[in-house]
């Protein structure tokens, strides 16, 4: 369990100001979140919450809202 906000994780991994991270932020809609950044994001999430994401979850992780949903399945409070 960790108390780091998922928004902070996204802001750090995508090099965005925290104010620009919201639930609707989605993969490939901004230049900062391309496939390269996606790998960094996955690594950041895994490190922060000490989990290993399944392949299907990495593919499904297409928005902040989706990430919250997925992390629930790993018993992570975000």
């Amino acid at each position: 369990m960790s108390s780091t906000s998922i928004y902070e994780v996204f802001a750090k991994a995508l090099a965005l100001p925290l104010s620009e991270v919201s639930d609707v932020l989605a993969y490939n809609t901004i230049s900062q979140w391309d496939s390269t950044a996606h790998l960094g994001l996955v690594a950041e999430i895994e490190e922060t919450y000490q989990i290993l994401l399944e392949m299907d979850d990495i593919l499904e992780l297409s928005s902040v809202a989706k990430a919250k949903e997925i992390l629930l399945r790993y018993d992570v409070t975000v």
Binding site: S35, H38, L39, V42, A43, E54, M55, I58, L59
Partner: peptide, 9 residues
């Protein structure tokens, strides 16, 4: 390949 590895494909 980096993506595939990260995906644990």
């Amino acid at each position: 390949y980096e993506m595939l590895q990260k995906l644990r494909f």
